[in-house]
């Protein structure tokens, strides 16, 4: 802020506070207006469809990441957990582990089991963080590295190709014209936003992120809440992994969820959630992910190479964090 002379500081406050609150929304609206002006065929249902289906997995993972970050932690393992769930599910419904004849049963078991495994590994992250007080970035680094290795060993590093419409409904199906994955995303976002605001568990998450010591002294079960939060992050990563493989009718342990942890963290940061914890906005995360998606879409559709899109993404993150700092300082 300019030079710190008191009189000039005052009028800045509301601007930064306003920006902090609505910056992501404003950027998103501006981007959409820009696209209407320059991108051919932008105003169509299909554009909405493409963007929503492409952003789905990032939003689902980023919701879990928002909760983890709200407790003052971080989860680097989400991409690897996606790969594990994505590698495990086809092995089950293609009958490599158990011989189940009934397709519906096999698919149901594949979905439940692979998401549960991802959730359990998430809980393991939480256990490391809560019980041994290992820094979250280090604790989740364990599965970030080992997780993808596990997925590769499970599949021998080979591509698993399948065509099972019953399973692929989660990536390709539609209910009342809406892609099923978009419905999953909406349910996850609404549930998390409600939970964070209206439930004791939600308040506990924010209390821990705000001041862990104080929360503990006030009787918040810090360890349990942390384990639950990391488990939720793992579960959501598992669901996202299944969506990715369902769309592609193939599971590649080397690629599923690669770089997802950073996309999710970027969405959370742009969405205005404090990376130090204590304040979180699920809606902000949704807007953040949509903003990054639209930026990518805009550049790609207008013939700008992918490498440039990464630079722009970084610039948006820097701008978001800068606005946050300004708003807090005033």
């Amino acid at each position: 802020m300019a030079a710190g002379s008191r009189p000039s500081q005052k009028p800045d406050r509301p601007i930064y506070a306003f920006l902090d609150r609505y910056a992501t929304l404003i950027v998103l609206v501006l981007l959409i207006l820009l696209n209407i002006a320059i991108t051919p065929n932008f105003l169509s249902v299909q554009t909405l469809n493409v963007n929503l289906t492409q952003v789905c997995t990032i939003v689902i993972v980023a919701v879990g990441m928002t909760l983890v970050i709200a407790t003052g932690g971080i989860d680097l393992s989400v991409g690897s957990l996606m790969a594990i769930a994505g590698a495990l599910a086809p092995m089950i419904f293609m009958g490599k582990i158990f011989g189940i004849e009934h397709v519906g049963l096999a698919v149901g078991l594949a979905i439940i089991l692979s998401v549960a495994v991802a959730g359990a590994l998430g809980a393991f992250n939480g256990w490391l963080v809560a019980t041994f007080h290992i820094q979250p970035i280090v604790a989740t680094l364990v599965l970030f590295i080992a997780g993808r290795g596990i997925a590769q060993v499970m599949t021998n590093g080979n591509l698993q190709v399948f065509s099972v419409p019953e399973f692929q409904f989660i990536g390709l199906g539609r209910i009342l014209g809406l892609p099923f994955q978009v419905i999953i995303m909406a349910v996850v976002v609404v549930w998390a936003a409600w939970m964070l605001r209206r439930t004791v568990f939600g308040r506990q998450i924010l209390a821990i992120g705000g001041n862990e010591k104080a929360a503990e002294l006030a009787g918040v079960p810090v360890g349990r809440v942390k384990i639950a939060v990391y488990a939720i992050s793992g579960l959501l990563a598992g669901i996202a992994g299944l969506i990715v493989i369902a769309i592609n009718s193939a599971s590649d342990a080397n690629l599923v969820g690669l770089g997802m942890e950073l996309d999710a963290i970027a969405a959370v940061a742009v969405g205005g959630t404090l990376l130090s914890g204590g304040r979180a906005s699920i809606w902000g995360t949704l807007l953040g992910a949509l903003t990054i998606q639209i930026v990518r879409y805009t550049l790609l559709a207008n013939g700008v190479p992918d490498a440039a899109a990464m630079v722009v993404k970084a610039a948006i993150i820097i701008a978001a964090v800068w606005i946050q700092r300004k708003a807090r300082a005033s």
């Binding site: 991108t39 051919p40 065929n41 169509s44 299909q46 554009t47 493409v50 289906t53 492409q54 990715v244 769309i247 592609n248 193939a250 590649d252 690629l255 599923v256 990518r296 879409y297 790609l300 559709a301 207008n302 013939g303 190479p305 992918d306």
Partner: peptide, 23 residues
């Protein structure tokens, strides 16, 4: 003409976007 990194998922996403921009 854009890169899809020789990968199925990336190729699909890039193709979706380009098909939309160039119907």
């Amino acid at each position: 003409s854009q890169t899809g990194d020789f990968a199925r998922d990336k190729g699909r996403q890039v193709a979706e976007t380009l098909l939309q921009a160039h119907p």
